[in-house]
Structures are given as C-alpha cells and as structure tokens.
Amino acid sequence: MSIFGFIGTWTLALQWQHTFKANGIQNIAGILVAGMQGIYGDMFTSFYYLVTEFIGHYSWKKRRNDNGELVVDKKFGAKDVFLAIFFWTIGLGFLSYWMGGQKIVLDALTNGLSFTAQQRQVKGHLDGYYIWLLVDFLSFMLFISIGNQIVAFSYLGMFAQGLVGIMIWKKGKGQA
C-alpha cells in the first residue's frame, strides 16, 4: 500500500497522466487495510479514491494544453472547498459512528478533507495540494494513535512529496 502510495503521490506531482493507475492499486490496498483495522471512514475514502481515479484520468486528458501540459487552476476555491469539507466530514463521521469505528472524529476529519482534496486535484486545482498536506499530517496522527506505524510514517513521506508537488504545480506553464 505504501509503495504504491509513494509512486502515485510522486507521479501526481509530476502530472503524469497514468498516475491514476498506480493510485488505483494503492486504493484497493487501502480498502483492505482500513477495513481490517475498523477505520471505516478511511476504508470508504479509499473506495471513493478508487472511483475518482477514473474521473481524474479523463479529466486530466481534457485539461492538457496543446503542448501536453496539465492546465492547473491556481485560484483557491474557498466556497467549494469549505462546503465539501463540511458535508463530507459530517457524513463520513456519522457513517463511521454507525459502523462502530475507531477514532471517529479524527477519522471523519481526515476523510472529509481527503474527499475534498481528491475532488479538487482530479479536476486540476492546486488548492487540493494544500488540503493534502493537512490530510497527511492528520493521517499520521490517526495511524500512530491506532498503532500502525508503517502506514503512519508513509503519510509523512507523502507530506514531503506534497511539498514538492506544490512547487512543481506552481511552476507549471499551463494555467486556468
């Protein structure tokens, strides 16, 4: 799971069109790991990611300019971001609570933010990266708190990759 997470995060930063395939494999592993550990919000988030990998692949194809560069929207969509975070966090928190999940508040918060970051990024918005940084830090805290150090530290690695991704996406020539 962690290896494909790193590959997917790095290739996303590089705006490689096939990043969605590597991320899809990581999402399948994420569904299995989170489900076995009772972190149901994270499990459903991984399923959501898996679905959005298809959307992202086709969205990015349409967002490329004549030179093949991804056209990145560098404006912060505050209204869209805050509404999505609010609804995803409450919805996933309720679902996790209903299923008897662990660490429900932290699980719901990381997943509400994750859904929002994924939605923004598959549509080519730079602000998704800033949300991912927060998600990676909170996910580190979540997995440390349940005793899964391997997954926890993989989130710190993805945090570092996210910082690089921001720099690359900011430099990009394509812009909406």
Rank of each mutant, 00 (worst) to 15 (best):
G174I: 10
K123I: 05
G165S: 05
G101T: 02
I55S: 06
A78D: 00
Q149V: 13
G68F: 02
M1K: 11
G147Q: 03
K61V: 10
G41R: 05
Y155A: 01
K173F: 08
I144N: 00
K62L: 10
I3C: 00
L70Y: 06
F94G: 09
I39R: 02
N23R: 14
S154E: 10
Q17K: 14
F82Y: 13
G68Q: 03
G93M: 10
T89Y: 04
I3V: 14
D80K: 11
H125S: 09
G24K: 02
M141L: 15
Q102N: 12
E69D: 15
F94I: 14
F6G: 09
G172Y: 07
S59F: 11
W169I: 04
Q161V: 13
V51P: 01
L50K: 03
G112Q: 07
Y58K: 13
F143E: 03
F6Q: 02
K75Y: 10
G174F: 09
A22P: 03
Y155Q: 02
F47T: 14
D107Y: 09
L138T: 08
A117E: 01
S59R: 14
F115N: 04
T52A: 03
G41C: 11
I28H: 04
K74Y: 11
G56I: 01
G112F: 09
V81N: 05
K173Y: 09
L156K: 01
W132Y: 12
L83M: 13
W132P: 01
G147C: 00
Q149F: 14
A152C: 03
K75H: 13
Q119R: 11
G93P: 08
K170E: 13
K62I: 11
S59K: 14
M158C: 10
L133V: 09
W98N: 12
K173I: 12
S46V: 07
L95V: 14
G174C: 09
V151L: 14
Q149Y: 15
F86G: 10
I90K: 09
S139M: 11
M158D: 00
S114I: 05
W88K: 02
L92P: 00
V105H: 09
E53G: 01
L95I: 15
H125C: 08
D66C: 00
L70Q: 06
V81S: 09
G124I: 01
Y129N: 06
D107G: 08
T45Y: 13
T89V: 09
I104V: 15
L50S: 08
G162E: 03
V105E: 11
